[in-house]
Design a protein around this nucleic acid. Structure first.
Lengths: 132, 132
DNA sequence: GACCTGCTTGACGTTTACGTCAACGTCAAG
DNA sequence: CTTGACGTTGACGTAAACGTCAAGCAGGTC
């Protein structure tokens, strides 16, 4: 029996756009750029759970300042992990390593930034104390 | 005696651009946008240690996907911490709090991303093992 | 004094990532 | 059967963040 769980849920453009916090234009644009390929019900777009997952990945990439081509590279990789070509898998692993190096650098950068922000806040509080 | 340490070092546009990994155009653009205001030796720009610090902050912001206006807000705050107006300091503190909340969210986001990347890498390795 | 190097200021071009119409199809409700 | 609500595809517009000339000055050198 095909269990009809949330796996089968679908979304219209508007529904998904609203949920993801973007406009329908954005979703259509991403499709035109080949970042997602939702099914169609006649002429209308029907987004699947997988489509939604891809889009979430893309949007996260965007929040980190990645360009759309970069985002595409990432999402393409995610479903490339089921590849069966040895060569391909090795390239993927190498790329994943590069990415995680970059992400770790960003983490460190973030930590420093947070420390600095806290520092400035402390200076503020000191000044405020002086004024009291 | 004015100790002539590194505090007094200055840079030309090119020197600083090269060091920061941007073009001179970028530095001039940032100046036109009011993000930095280097001194002049005659007509030529002379960047100070402080200018450099501001620029590093701005560029870090950019790496995190902030817009230039957002970057400006940040750098302006950094030297606004020496303000003496109570009202101003309180506003600053509030804003700093917002920022650190945002940064923490990004941290969490980054952690998730790193975990996922590691996960995909594991899947890759599994597949490679199967192929052996 | 010609030449080169490095700086200057415009001014216009370009790319990215969408926004914003316009014009049209479609399906259920009244 | 018409009226919305929601969808569709172009096509053109736009803001941000620079890139890319062009034209010119300033100072050192051969």
């Amino acid at each position: 029996m095909a269990s009809k769980t949330e796996e089968d849920r679908t979304w219209t453009v508007r529904e998904l756009a609203d949920e993801l916090g973007v406009t329908t234009r954005t979703l259509r644009f991403y499709e035109a750029e080949g970042l997602v390929s939702p099914q169609r019900a006649g002429t209308n777009r029907v987004y699947s759970v997988r489509d939604r997952a891809r889009l979430r990945l893309i949007l996260r990439g965007r929040r980190f300042g990645m360009t759309l081509p970069e985002c595409r590279e990432i999402v393409d990789m995610y479903n490339g992990a089921e590849s069966s070509e040895r060569r391909q898998l090795e390239r993927l692993l190498a790329r994943l390593d590069e990415i995680s190096v970059d992400l770790r650098a960003r983490q460190a950068d973030l930590r420093r930034t947070l420390a600095e922000v806290a520092d400035v806040a402390d200076q503020c509080r000191s000044r405020l104390d002086e004024l009291a």
